[in-house]
Computed example of a mutant assay.
Amino acid sequence: RVSGRWYVSADKPAPGAPQQLWEQGRMTAVRGADSLVLGVGQPRAKLADVAGLADDAVPAVRRVWPERWAGRLIVLLPASLDRMAALLGEKPADYRGIAAVTTGELGSAAHVPADRVTVNPEAYEELGAFGKRFVLIHEATHVATRSATTAATPLWLSEGFADWSGYHGSGRTPRQVAPELAEAVREGEAPDTLPTDADFAFSGDPGRLARAYEGGWLTCRMIAEQWGEPKLRDFYRAVGEHEGRDGAVAAAARKVLGVDEAELVGRWRGYVREQLA
């Protein structure tokens, strides 16, 4: 900025900044009814398939999160895992096996045009039809709940709610959705506490990561079953509205569910054993 005017200083990312998709090659755009899919090194037919699933994901998310949100998805489909990592400014190894991620600012206004779903084309292609649909609904849920998600929201809740949304109405049983936790229960190693944020590290033990997602999903499923889906949404919002991370879950449990955190965790432990034994 010079004398009150902005000038372009370079046609490449600033030092340390991640790439933009259009800097990776010739970009193709496919516009869906409620989506925009941008790809580099991908056939138009694949982009159109992703756009169709993204369009289907929007009403699926509206059914479980009827709050106001943009109602549109921007999906980036780079040519490879390495290119995906470059868009995120991360190491490729951290996202191997991760089908997609959503980036955006936590606690933003309901209309957040910066939210983008970035797909790992290698992991995504290994999925079947249900898996691809699930991934788009899961990521669309993150976009929809962005304004209610803050630094106070633990990952077990944000990821668990997105998984609950993705599996909603699918008919999948807990043993089908949570095989890693089911094995732990059978071996007498059922968890005693809710998953921590550290359990969700992409670069850590894949079994630990799977159990973290499964544990978060089961918690949201339990709340929806025992208190009702509206209470689950109220709980999600109440956690995000708390000042700071400490005590957020405890305060929301008392306010919305009428139980303290110890009882909530105790019910979850029993629910895990009951559903997966």
Rank of each mutant, 00 (worst) to 15 (best):
L209D: 03
T150H: 04
W268P: 12
D246W: 02
D163R: 00
K46G: 15
V265D: 14
R44A: 15
R133K: 08
V64F: 06
L21N: 00
V58W: 07
A140F: 00
V265Q: 15
T103N: 08
W156P: 03
G216N: 09
A129W: 02
E261P: 04
V112Q: 14
V75H: 07
D205G: 04
A114P: 04
H138I: 01
I98D: 10
R211C: 11
L106N: 00
P78K: 07
G266S: 13
V30G: 08
P13D: 03
P113G: 06
G71D: 10
P195V: 05
L127G: 04
P121V: 04
P92Y: 04
S35Q: 03
P43L: 05
Y167R: 08
M84T: 10
L47A: 14
R245A: 15
R63H: 12
P230W: 00
G207F: 04
C220V: 08
G128Y: 01
G131E: 02
D234I: 00
G228H: 08
L47E: 15
V2T: 14
E243P: 14
C220H: 05
T153E: 11
A248L: 08
R245G: 11
P18K: 00
V119E: 11
W6S: 13
E23Q: 13
R96T: 07
F235M: 11
Q226E: 15
A162I: 01
D205S: 06
Y236D: 12
D234G: 02
E23A: 07
T150E: 10
A144N: 02
A51E: 08
L77M: 15
V8Y: 06
L181N: 12
A252C: 07
P92I: 02
D11W: 01
A224C: 11
V249K: 01
G131Q: 03
A85F: 01
E67I: 01
S80E: 13
G32V: 10
A100M: 05
W156N: 02
V177H: 07
A184R: 13
R233D: 09
G107E: 03
A110C: 06
